[in-house]
Amino acid sequence: MSEPPKERVKYIDTNLNLPYHYYAGDYKALYLRALRDKKILGSRCSKTGKVFVPPVIASPESLAPCDELVELPHRGIVTTFCVVNVPVIGREIEIPYVVASVALDGADVSLYSLIQECAAADVRMGTRVEAVWKPDGERQGDHTDIRYFRPTGEPDAPFESFIHRL
């Protein structure tokens, strides 16, 4: 035979498995551990006073350090949201459900969270919500410690109060 087979090998399976050992960094470590103690931490910009949650070491906007850590209230506003109508593998929530940006009172940026204990159709931009935590003893110090936010029944916040905190 003066040449290799015409019938070629078409594919090679290359199953890469790369080991990593990620470090959270001190600020994120404090944030996550504080969730276990039912606390939500943020950090305050030394130049503008803006509060970031989860805490960052420096403001992405002013580039000034955010040395002060603060404890945020567990209540806030739905700033923007979406209604999920497609099931996600591994997520046991009845559809449709709401994923929202929640600006905690006093925070200048928002967190992402589920909104539950209400119909999806009842969530609005401006809906006042509060955190629902896992019970004492079950919190692990991770994002699932806040199970979700639920409406408080307070009047909606005016648009102007959250438009810059989406």
């Binding site: 594919y11 090679i12 399976d13 290359t14 199953n15 890469l16 498995n17 790369l18 080991p19 990593y20 050992h21 990620y22 470090y23 959270a24 001190d26 994120k28 470590a29 996550l32 551990r33």
Partner: peptide, 13 residues
């Protein structure tokens, strides 16, 4: 320090 070990898989063909 807080850390997490993880294996990132890329099943390329």
């Amino acid at each position: 320090p807080m850390s997490q070990r993880m294996t990132v898989a890329f099943p390329y063909k």
